[in-house]
Design a protein around this nucleic acid. Sequence first.
DNA 1: CAATAGATCATCT
DNA 2: GATGATCTATTGC
Length: 193
Amino acid sequence: MQPPLPRSFYTRGAVQVARALLGKVVAHGQTSGTIVETEAYLGPGDDASHSARGITPRTRVIFGPPGHAYVYLIYGMYECLNLVAEPEGVPGCVLIRAIEPVSGLDQMRRRRGVARIEVLANGPGKLTRALGIHLRHSGTDVTRGPITVHPPARDTPIEIAVSTRIGITKCADLPLRFFIRGNPYVSRGSGAS
DNA sequence: CAATAGATCATCT
DNA sequence: GATGATCTATTGC
């Protein structure tokens, strides 16, 4: 596995980072997967983002230096993994919505309690469970670990498709969701194709 | 197949 | 006290 992506990768707009993350590999322990679906969350003006209403203890990390993990609990049940973008002081992050499992498949199956590979990590709450990512990982540096993001082992050409974000009620019309067109591991509830 | 109900809690008001 | 950037099981065609 190649070294993690440098902090400069994340030091740019959240939309750019969201697009650039497609095809990259996120790893935690022995488990890893290729990112196939992302969403960008901006700062003030994007009322769907947690950082829209300023700094709180939880959202502090989104305003901090790029290349860190922002993990939060949703619906009392599931953790969601974001990667912080933008220079320090500027809010913006990228939600990882789906990955294609690459390594540690048996451990992922055990953590998830399902066998079918297509369904192991094709959703934001599923992939954190498959990778063993928890709330306590919020604020950790993904250029150092334990969660890391790497270039793919083999660079394969991809076509990026764009749509509106899923599951939100505010700012629901912005084209800020990005996914690899035709990839079978993109989450359902999608306007894929 | 589509629609819906319920689980469950950190965070913010 | 209200609110979710979700998922699964179950119901009803």
